[in-house]
């Protein structure tokens, strides 16, 4: 898998005239990487992810996956939104199966595949529950399982833990790191939380606002697997502080 974004511009037409949301974005993600784009609100990071997902078209520039330009949304790029996007009328099991069903997979295969991914996110016992019966963190785990069930080349995550309380958020970060190491999936995640970005990523793109540009790229050379304690180490803090300084400028 090779995601390549080059010379990307995105302009929105607003009532006040054109608004440049993204300016000259160059970015790449390789197989098995966990990459975060971190930036304040208004830095166009969500727009960037929507462009990669194919939910929006760039004004200029190109986005390719394995050399093939993106022509709209597709199940090769799984997406997890900040808002809860489970289908409320379906059980957890049916939710995880839904992508496979849309692609026309047989019921038996679908069920097996969905169960496998539910097991992977630790929610096998909730297969028959409705989304409204789950906590926020559990809903996001189901959403991740649903995206992974389609076996995408890359998982796109738009502030997936942004709506969660601090304790749940930390638990979900550990969960994601663990999942990433077990499945060797490729992840591009958007967050405004610098600590979250440093804790999770191998590489970080730091974005600044108006217009959204990539300020710098940071390689996080902290050892894996990581645990909570690493957040208190000097190495971690210096990464975090360096990025915060970059965001201020």
């Amino acid at each position: 898998m090779h995601l390549e974004i080059s010379n990307l511009y995105k302009q929105f037409l607003t009532k006040q005239g054109p608004l440049l949301a993204l300016e000259n974005i160059n970015l790449h993600v390789e197989t098995g990487e966990l990459v975060c784009a971190v930036g304040a609100s208004g830095s166009g990071k969500s727009t960037l992810l929507r462009l990669v997902a194919g939910l929006d078209q760039p004004t200029e520039g190109s986005i390719t996956v394995d050399g093939v330009p993106i022509m709209g949304p597709g199940s090769d790029r799984g997406m997890v939104f900040q808002k809860y996007t489970l289908y409320p009328w379906m059980t957890v099991q049916k939710n995880v199966e839904s992508g496979l069903k849309l692609q026309g997979m047989e019921a038996i295969q679908r069920r097996q595949r969905a169960s496998y991914y539910l097991e992977m996110v630790g929610l096998a016992g909730f297969a028959r529950a409705l989304p409204k019966e789950l906590s926020g963190g559990m809903k996001q785990r189901v959403a991740i399982a649903r995206a992974l069930a389609c076996q995408p080349k890359i998982l796109l995550m738009d502030e997936p833990f942004g709506a969660l309380d601090v304790q749940t958020k930390e638990a979900m970060q550990l969960f994601l790191l663990d999942l990433w190491q077990r499945t060797h999936c490729t992840i591009l995640m958007i967050t405004h939380d610098v600590e979250e970005a440093v804790f999770l990523s191998q590489r970080i793109y730091v974005m600044t606002a108006r217009p959204g540009t990539i300020q710098t790229e940071v390689h996080v050379e902290l050892p894996m697997p990581r645990h909570y304690e690493i957040k208190r180490t000097q190495d971690f803090l210096s990464y975090k502080n360096a990025i915060i300084d970059r965001l201020r400028t």
Partner: peptide
């Protein structure tokens, strides 16, 4: 969001309408 996530799961317009 519910409609967009369906597109990212490989759904087409007709499927969004129906499902």
């Amino acid at each position: 969001d519910l409609i967009e996530v369906t597109y990212t799961l490989g759904g087409n317009r007709l499927q969004v309408l129906k499902s």
